[in-house]
Design a binder for these strands. Structure first.
Length: 541
RNA sequence: GCGCCCGUAGCUCAGCUGGAUAGAGCAACAGCCUUCUAAGCUGUGGGUCAAGCGUUCGAGUCGCUUCGGGCGCGCCA
């Protein structure tokens, strides 16, 4: 248990002793901003004063007199009714031993037995990934890691739209590029085709491998260009994401979702909610959460994208997940109400599906915004950015802010590799811990950390003790940026400790042994935290 | 017109189910290396929390209104 959990329990017991029943989840324990206010404080006496029908100060006095805990040095009442807790030193020091024993698992919660599917990126295989995908990849992967650390069984999933209009355009575009290589006249891209450079390269590969075998326009070559295009594009996407340390446990193809009459069976099931209008078939999603009904079959008989998506989400639920999370670009926010409605038609509760909407990234280079466009092919591609800036910096920068906020990415600054970059600040803290541990490797660590007493050491201990709580609250809120904020605070505390407390002092081995243990605990927590964001922890810099 | 996100220091952003004096990084300024990595530390300055009204012991946080920015509102995905 963390200090905060222990204090909550202590408070609950004290409340019980004076005849007040309170829910520990309702208790707020926070760090005291000022050390004069102790290590932790709570507003419980004010919060529960109405429930207890007592004045906050009176309730605080009663609670304090009923509090007993071996970890507390003293308890004080301050201001309008705050209760301030002063921990005994060994209660703070104890975290070092715990961290060193748990190692890579420090901060990890016990398995909850709850299965969550996180779907993210799911870019159409029609071109290179752009910056919007980059942010979805960083956010989605970090959310998945957070949930995993918080004890959920997580599956990372990518959905490939390999059917429909877009792949027709892909096939056509690729065919045109292929014809161009042979100088065929009249081969021109349509308005809706893909104009990116990458298709020229893929066409060249086809020419190299198959020569002029697909010059004729028939069903075989039509299907060939689509299949080849999808496979080539998807492979590039997966390579790019692997290099970005983003891997998927499961890839689902829309073409598989459409197989074996699954769509038709689902339509049959949904029949009570279907109706015809102007030749199209609509699903009455407005009977649930949506503001209007949505077409599922167009007048030309084709399915809209929504129809296979419904089958896909039913498929995910049928695979035994308790919750689904879709990480989507913010421009898709209208989508969630209709999909939740479709899930509710199947009897699932509203909250089985949640969406994380990732706001747009704006890139500034030389003081000017660089606009991106998939159509014109003049975008800053995901791959180019990662190659220029490095995986660590991009992963860090792209999860550093709340996904619901717009992100301004300063390309110049991030490629500068200067000390302005917060990711180096954190990695440097880790490298310094490694360095000092290496220099003192002959000195046995004192994992009781009992010689620690400087204020800089104590505040570092408090932060280290916070980590499990930071993980679980960040996971519940799907908020990787909170981990980034924690990393900055922790790195600052480590640098301050390193600078202000001489760690290795051969004339005082007792203090040295405690401080080395603190350095080791700091290194472990930094590495675990950075790992959740997909950022490496170098031992030397 | 309707819906979603956002508006906090010069810039980029935190601010934890409403709590003590609104914070951090960058930028600016002043110090600190013959000792463990100066990619660092220590200190200073910087705010009508977009505006107004309301809710209450207490509002950056909750509600309403207005203003400003972004994104949606398709038989596209």
């Amino acid at each position: 248990m963390t200090n905060e959990e222990l204090l909550k329990e202590t408070l609950r017991l004290a409340a019980e002793a004076i005849g007040l029943s309170i829910d520990p989840a309702q208790i707020v324990i926070e760090h005291s901003r000022d050390t004069a206010h102790g290590d932790y404080s709570t507003n419980a006496a004010m919060r529960f004063s109405r429930l207890a029908q007592k004045k906050p100060l009176d309730l605080a006095k009663e609670l304090v007199s009923a509090i007993s805990s071996p970890m507390l040095e003293k308890v004080e009442i301050a201001g309008p009714g705050f209760i301030n807790f002063f921990l005994k030193k060994d209660a703070l020091q104890g975290v070092v031993e715990r961290i060193i024993q748990e190692g890579d698992d420090y901060g990890r919660s016990p398995k909850k037995g709850i299965k969550i599917n996180v779907e993210y990126v799911s870019a159409n295989p029609t071109g290179d990934l752009h910056l919007g995908h980059t942010r979805c990849a960083a956010i989605g992967d970090s959310i998945a890691s957070l949930l995993d650390f918080a004890g959920y069984d997580v599956t990372r999933e990518y959905y490939v739209n390999d059917c429909g209009n877009q792949v027709e355009h892909l096939g056509h575009s690729l065919r045109i590029r292929y014809l161009e290589l042979f100088g065929v006249e009249g081969a021109v891209l349509d308005e809706d085709d893909y104009h990116g450079q990458d298709l020229i390269e893929i066409a060249q590969r086809i020419k190299d491998r198959y020569g002029d075998a697909y010059l004729e326009d028939n069903q075989e070559s039509h299907d060939f260009f689509i299949r080849f295009g999808i496979d080539a594009e998807l492979q590039k996407i997966r390579d790019d994401l692997n290099a970005f340390r983003v891997r998927f446990d499961k890839i689902t193809y829309e073409s598989d979702i459409r197989k074996d009459g699954k769509i038709e069976k689902t339509l049959e099931f949904l029949k009570p909610y279907l109706y015809q209008s102007e030749g199209a078939t609509y699903l009455a999603t407005s009977k649930f959460l949506d503001d209007k009904d949505r077409p599922v079959i167009k007048a030309d008989g084709c399915y809209t994208y929504f129809m296979p998506d419904i089958v896909y989400h039913y498929d995910k639920m049928a695979r035994g997940f308790d919750y689904l999370i879709d990480v989507l670009g913010a421009d898709h926010h209208g989508y969630i109400a209709r999909m939740k409605s479709a899930l509710m038609m199947k009897g699932y509760p509203e909250n089985v599906l949640s969406a994380e909407f990732v706001q747009v990234v704006r890139v500034f280079r030389d003081g000017q915004e660089v606009r991106m466009s998939k159509r014109t092919g003049k975008a800053i591609a995901h791959r180019d950015l990662v190659e220029d800036v490095g995986v660590d910096a991009v992963r860090y920068f792209f999860s550093e802010r709340s996904q619901s906020s717009h992100l301004d990415f300063n390309y110049n600054l991030a490629t500068e590799q200067s000390s302005n970059n917060p990711v180096y600040y954190a990695q440097y803290a880790h490298a310094r811990c490694c360095s000092v541990l290496s220099l003192g490797q002959d000195i046995p660590l004192d994992i009781s950390a009992k010689e620690l007493k400087e204020e800089g050491e104590m505040s570092l201990l408090r932060l280290l003790a916070d980590f499990p709580g930071v993980i679980s609250s960040s996971a519940e809120e799907r908020a990787p940026y909170k981990v980034a904020a924690y990393i900055q605070k922790l790195a600052a505390a480590v640098h301050s400790f390193y600078t202000n407390c001489r760690i290795i002092d051969r004339g005082d081995l007792a203090t040295t042994a405690s401080r080395l243990a603190l350095a080791k605990a700091s290194k472990i927590v930094l590495k675990n935290a950075l790992g959740i964001l997909g950022v490496s922890s170098p031992e030397k810099m």
